[in-house]
Design a protein around this nucleic acid. Structure first.
Lengths: 347, 347
DNA sequence: ATGAAAGCGCTAACAA
DNA sequence: TTGTTAGCGCTTTCAT
């Protein structure tokens, strides 16, 4: 029935996979027509669309997006770079990113930079090499080297979860300094006069704490030696760190009446240890967390904490990238979404 | 200085990006030599490696992995398909996957199927179209359609977090039936005689619950009407669901002395509500969670729960895929990693 | 509305 | 060890 197919001349590497050419042959059209049916069916007459769709169905053809990406220089992938995934506060952002990007036909690829940014350069190369149509960073790109690479790549970039006067490109976040100050003022208003900190040591936490300490001193909430009691734990903060932190703090400063924790997990540890030590919360000690994780409303007592809208940041970051790709003008490429202190029982 | 470059004959689409050919020209070698320096430097003489590396450095060249993938039919990407990311128990698995795959030079791409698998087919097409070198599923692929597509794609596949006699390919998980039975027996041994369930309604939960109820009846822990009190909440389980569940359960069955919850968050809600109602835990009521999330050890009272080793599953899944790609024989492609009941204070 | 030709940037296969 | 050649599977450009 068929004319014999010309045998391969010299080299052929085809791995047996079905290609668009095969579908075209089955449908009796040119390859480009199959491509059009897939990408812009409105440019093809209904009966050909019909025929091609049938051929696709019959053969079970799945287009090779790698080849498409190469030819069109559009990968339809967006990369998210996180310090870590597990126990991470960025999960909601990733979720919102995935949802919003999927709706626009984009897939998320995940990169983990680690908190030590040891292999950051490698990671950037692996990410940029895949030519994503956008990159979302959890945090700010601090290394000048990294910023240069990203900017050289000309890939739309969104930094999140922070603010900086010198964003590499687009930005959606909030001020860690403002949080530190706001928490100190909040505690002051609630009658606290002797505040402390239990915190991880990452750069964002340090800025939060600096502002917190400054405000505390200004409001005269420091200790008799003029300083604010401080306990540092390794990032990311754990409940165990919070427990140890409270014990250490209390040993040196039994008179503190409030603790600001660098995460809700740390605060949970503080709550647990306080319970064990028989310390009344919030009577004797106020505890404030950070993040407003789902469990924060269900602790004993319910945790007062700083609510950070991770979903919103993810949603806005996705929109930034989609708009940038579409060429839609973006009025403000730097967006401060703020935060709110959720007052519950622990403070 | 240079001989004039032949002007483009007809069409040229080059987007100004630096390519391997550019680097080759700068280094004064053939393109394939640059490729070799990048992928198998041991096959190139040290001085040429030197020269090429210098050229790469000087130009800031970043290889286009899309093109490389197309040519080599190796994408160096692995896809993970999850029902949802936020509040998900799969995070540890994703983390372990990312780490272990990155160490082997693979990047993770994320797909979210939703609990309703509405757009599952679309998602599979988007994933398979990117030609990942492996796919990891959170759970089992239930739809015959989906299984067929995956198997037709011939991509190494690992199903996780469950067991089935008919895996599509490789599998690492544990038996939900065994969990249900083990929890019932655990409660019996701890002296409970009137057990209940608060559970999400997903398929895995249903199998857990069925086994739990069966064991409970066998051990004579059912209610006077012969049934085990049951409250269903929508997936994924939340603390609010747990609170409502406990109230509902107690209204109809004030005499229950144990509750098995479908997640730690649900159990946390039960603890909170019990506290509010003045119900002594574990005195009056035993509570068992599922998952052993980080906060489970820090609740009041500390939560007794079923520990599931998400990291281990991620690590094994990564190894399965890496081995399969390398052609390393895999002795058992179906692995039951079991679970443990972590006895703390709530039961 | 449809198709032919020419790449996209890289690597496999073969040769020297 | 190094290079030449011919694709990988798709889309762009240009022509009809």
């Amino acid at each position: 029935m068929n004319a014999p197919v010309e045998p391969p001349k010299r080299t052929r590497r085809t791995k047996g996979g079905l290609t668009l050419v095969d579908v075209a042959r089955v449908a009796g059209v040119a390859p480009i027509t199959v491509s059009r049916v897939l990408n812009s069916p409105e440019k093809v007459s209904p009966d050909l669309v019909q025929k091609v769709r049938a051929a696709i169905e019959r053969t079970g053809y799945v287009p090779n997006l790698l080849a498409g990406s190469l030819a069109s220089t559009k990968s339809r992938m967006v990369a998210a770079i996180l310090p870590t995934i597990a126990g991470s506060v960025f999960i909601d952002t990733v979720q919102a990113l995935t949802e919003n990007l999927a709706a626009a036909g984009y897939q998320l690829i995940l990169g983990q930079s680690g908190y030590e940014n040891s292999r950051e350069d490698e990671l950037l190369e692996a990410i940029i090499g895949r030519r994503p149509d956008g990159i979302v960073l959890a945090g700010i790109m601090r290394s000048a080297q990294g910023r240069r690479r990203l900017q050289a790549s000309a890939i739309p970039l969104v930094e999140t979860w922070d603010l900086t006067p010198t964003p590499a490109d687009m930005l959606v976040g909030f001020s860690h300094e403002d949080i530190g100050q706001a928490v100190a003022e909040f505690l002051y208003q609630r009658g606290r006069r002797r505040v402390a900190v239990i915190s991880a040591s990452d750069e964002r936490a340090q800025r939060r704490n600096r502002a917190y300490v400054q405000a505390a001193v200004r409001l005269d909430m420091q200790g008799p030696d003029g300083s604010v009691p401080f306990h540092t734990i390794s990032a990311p903060g754990t409940a165990a760190g919070g427990r140890a932190g409270l014990r250490a703090l209390l040993a040196d400063h039994p008179d503190i009446d409030a603790v600001f924790c660098s995460s809700d997990m740390v605060a949970l540890g503080v709550l647990t240890e306080a319970h064990k030590l028989g310390i009344d919360i919030p009577g004797k000690l106020a505890v404030v967390g950070l993040g407003d994780q789902p469990f924060a409303a269900e602790t004993y007592p319910a945790l007062t904490t700083v609510h950070l809208d991770g979903r919103k940041m993810g949603q806005i970051a996705a929109q930034f990238i989609i708009d940038r790709i579409a060429g839609t003008p973006i009025p403000e490429v730097v967006r401060d979404i703020g935060f709110t202190i959720v007052e519950r029982e622990s403070a």
